[in-house]
Design a binder for these strands. Structure first.
Lengths: 362, 362
DNA sequence: TTTAAACATGTGTCCGAAAACATTTTTGTA
DNA sequence: TACAAAAATGTTTTCGGACACATGTTTAAA
């Protein structure tokens, strides 16, 4: 095996000292044009590739990163991105990467802004953020832009002028709607009806929910020969309440040929609670996210499919992209859509175990 | 942020020199029991975690790894694990990991053995192998055991006494059969029939195919209320031949209520060719592997589901496990089943793009 | 022509761990 | 008790690159 080319090899071949080669590599200036040209030629000729290991060791500085996401203690979902972040650190900490977590309280915008302020004054090299609150997030990112603080979005996409974010890592909401439609379509007959059900507040302000709806509808529009009726509904507070029961009962009565329901968020387990009491003929269900309540229903064959948004991987790739950018100084892709995994009782264990493998995906 | 604990920090706290600490860490001996005990205590107390970067730099040796798999030029499938291996190297080469590829010609056992002999005399630190030929592979691995050469299996599982392999990375064949059954089950009605179709030679010597069959059958056994008829068949040479057409035609006539077919390998596209001519009523199809011919049929909605065995990831994790073992000296899991991805027209792009993200999963 | 600022280039130390090498302490035996 | 062998412990160099610092050379103003 050939010995790897070092700086000193270049220096010798170019007849200069390693200091001069270093100045060329790091564009520190103070090198005469001719010498610079010669060194660059030798570098190309010998195909110099820096030793990242030695470089990281010598650099001997640490990178400060802030991670801004909801508090996992309030909403267990967020434990998953957090665990992905921690896994990525397991490896990147060797390179001096450090993450401070800022967990904002759900539905507490004031607290969100406090976190933002702390980050802005914290001398960070990069921020990884789940920009849940539209207006507040934009404001924060504007301030980041002014400060020159680099930010990486995950989970929720925010349109930014000039694509000033470093990258977005998350799902393609539109396509997840298409996928849900196809799954239900596979399990129903010509002429059946399917329902798209939002169980959230403020649906028509949430772009990602609208995108899911669009995708779902468009699938059936593009498959007109299936002759499927689409029902669009929403219910804001899907607790196990009389009101919710009444609502569902009403829907079932109104649409006797209803064979499938697509719930656009992770709240499908609320629907299962109510449906299983009513004990109607089997209605096929597609929802999102491997949270504990949903997993129970999936294993009991009450939910047919859960579309997985890879939350662990989102956190993991978030940190890894920051690493690639800061440490390895590589170009990274602006938009990184993660696979939409189709999870069923029969393959769910792999997606839960996937975390195990990930620790080594250095 | 707390400074990371170094060897010198332990040495100072334990009142010895770093040389002594080093001897304890590397079990080089020549340390008195009391001092050793004290150092180990301090290490635990300070939660010492070695700096892999500095360690790799100082070690300054390279690891020789052999990768033994079929020639991708004969069977394009094997390009995928190979590309996973190369991606893993993109990062691990910084740590001195080097891979030599040994590609055996498909169905040429003599050539396989030549490769094995070369590896055995090549002074390798580890072997990553896809043990396709049962007998020959066992023989080779026996010789590895004698030599003390560590081997890592992927793609195909081989039972070894004492679990002498370092790890197996691949799919769970049985479970993939269960998954296929559930997918078809979702799309058919009570009383319909489904077929399991092997399009390979020597099926009853191929444990993984039998395992798929078992899983498929057991799913329906455990769902008796569905009342699904299972038909087991096989055809060895699924070219676009009159014989194959006749065979398929015969099956369709014999089982008029046939609504789904599960092909146990990647050869489902051969079935599609024949079926699409016959133009019968829609029969739902589930097969394996994102190879080019299958992708075409999936996109044309002629195949409903492809179960993906993550071939790229298999190669990737193969190298990463070797890295964890050799370089980081970590314990690794003996059996690592990769997710069984359910791939459809609507999410196939992510699985093809997944390779892009992977480059950074250092 | 002198001289110092500006520029070009060279040298040395450091990062943390590994391992060769050097020194000190203990042990056993004459 | 003397002394060499063995065991225990300490010191130094090395890995490749980053960067501070030192030295040498050119340029321009006095």
């Amino acid at each position: 095996m050939k010995k790897r080319i070092r700086i000193i090899d270049i220096a010798e071949k170019a007849g200069v000292s390693k200091g001069t080669v270093d100045r060329v590599i790091h564009k520190r200036g103070h090198v005469s044009p001719e010498v610079k040209k010669r060194i660059l030629e030798v570098m190309k000729e010998l195909d110099y590739r820096p030793n990242v290991i030695a470089s990281a060791l010598a650099y001997n500085k640490s990178w400060k990163i802030a991670a801004l996401l909801p508090n996992p203690e309030n909403d267990a979902f967020w434990m998953q991105p957090k665990s992905g972040i921690l896994k990525a650190l397991n490896f990147t900490s060797d390179y001096g990467m450090n993450v401070d977590f800022y967990h904002f309280q759900d539905a507490n915008k004031q607290h969100f802004q406090n976190c933002c302020d702390q980050i802005l004054s914290g001398a960070y090299d990069a921020v990884l953020i789940a920009p849940l609150y539209y207006k507040e997030s934009h404001q924060f990112l504007n301030e980041c832009d002014e400060l020159g603080l680099k930010y990486f979005l995950f989970n929720t996409f925010l349109e930014r002028t000039d694509l000033s974010f470093q990258c977005y890592i998350g799902q393609d909401s539109y396509q997840s709607g298409v996928l849900a439609a196809k799954l239900l379509d596979f399990g129903i007959e010509n002429g059946d009806a399917v329902m798209i059900l939002h169980l959230e507040k403020g649906v028509y302000n949430a772009k990602h929910l609208l995108a899911k709806e669009q995708g779902f509808q468009n699938y059936f529009i593009e498959h007109p020969n299936r002759n499927i009726q689409i029902i669009k509904t929403s219910f804001e507070e899907p607790k196990d309440s009389p009101a919710f029961r009444k609502f569902i009962n009403y829907q079932l009565k109104s649409y006797p040929n209803l064979k499938g329901i697509f719930v656009t968020t992770s709240r499908i387990h609320h629907l299962v609670n109510v449906l299983s009491d009513i004990h109607t003929k089997k209605i096929k269900l597609v929802g999102f996210d491997l949270i504990s309540n949903n997993l129970t229903d999936l294993r009991a064959e009450k939910i047919d499919f859960l579309i997985n948004q890879n939350p662990v991987k989102q956190g993991y790739l978030g940190i890894l992209n920051i690493f690639e950018h800061l440490v390895r100084k590589k170009e990274i892709a602006k938009i990184q859509h993660l696979p939409l995994d189709v999870v069923m009782q029969e393959n769910v264990s792999y997606y839960l175990e996937a975390d195990q493998h990930m620790h080594m995906m250095i």
